[in-house]
Simulated scan of single mutants.
Amino acid sequence: MWLLAVLCAGTAALWVIRARLVVVRVSGDSMNPTLVDGDLLLAVRRRSWRTGSLVVFRTEPGRGTSEPYMIKRVAAVAGQAAPADLGGSPGKVVPRGALLVRGDAVRSLDSRKLGAVSEAAVVAVGVCALVPFRWVTAEAAGAPRPQT
């Protein structure tokens, strides 16, 4: 009887973990040097991110890519000033429900071409590269902690 209880508990735990975690294979070099082609990214399905976080998001058809998902770094969130290199000008802020993203590589398909990304399109937030292992959180990238 105890074996059945352990199996049920283990199955439930795996189901919960699978529902929260996703592993994404990196394709391309737009996030180089943080992520390179073929890396595996461990990401958490959650609805909170900040400037500097890596996000996995669904792309919209006809916006410059045939890839269904992209991985980019958050450059600015709703209410923050839009960076000049992503189309910002004095006084221009990221609209509510949107965020601006950029690749770590100089040549990257990001908000310079895609424009603002809908917050609803974000699927997960990157935590670490699995092979080889390295942290990719906003803190690891040197992003400042938000004031509380």
Rank of each mutant, 00 (worst) to 15 (best):
M1T: 02
L4T: 11
L4W: 14
V6K: 13
V6N: 05
C8L: 15
G10E: 05
G10H: 02
T11V: 01
A13S: 07
W15K: 01
I17L: 15
I17W: 15
R18D: 15
A19C: 05
V23L: 09
V24E: 08
R25F: 00
R25V: 08
G28L: 13
G28M: 13
G28I: 10
D29P: 11
D29R: 14
S30W: 10
S30M: 06
M31S: 11
P33H: 13
P33K: 14
P33D: 09
T34C: 10
T34G: 12
L35G: 09
V36F: 09
D37C: 10
D37H: 14
D37I: 02
G38Y: 07
D39N: 13
D39S: 09
L40Q: 14
L40H: 14
L41M: 14
L42N: 05
L42W: 12
R47E: 05
W49H: 09
W49P: 01
W49G: 04
R50D: 03
T51W: 02
T51S: 08
T51G: 08
G52S: 07
G52T: 11
G52R: 02
S53L: 01
L54V: 13
L54I: 13
G62L: 07
T65D: 04
T65I: 07
S66N: 03
P68E: 12
M70F: 08
M70V: 01
K72F: 12
R73Q: 14
A78Q: 06
G79T: 10
A82R: 11
A82Y: 00
A84V: 09
S89M: 12
S89F: 14
G91N: 08
K92E: 15
V93N: 09
V94N: 05
P95Y: 01
R96G: 00
D104I: 02
A105L: 06
A105Y: 03
A105W: 00
R107F: 12
S108C: 10
L109C: 07
R112G: 07
G115T: 04
G115Y: 02
V117R: 00
V117I: 15
S118W: 00
E119T: 14
E119C: 13
E119H: 05
A120H: 11
A120W: 07
A121M: 01
A121S: 15
V122R: 04
V123P: 05
A124C: 12
A124W: 11
A124H: 08
V125G: 07
G126C: 08
C128E: 01
L130K: 04
P132L: 10
R134H: 15
R134L: 05
W135R: 15
T137A: 08
T137M: 09
A138K: 05
E139M: 06
A141H: 08
G142C: 06
A143T: 12
P146L: 09
P146A: 10
P146E: 06
Q147N: 11
T148Q: 14
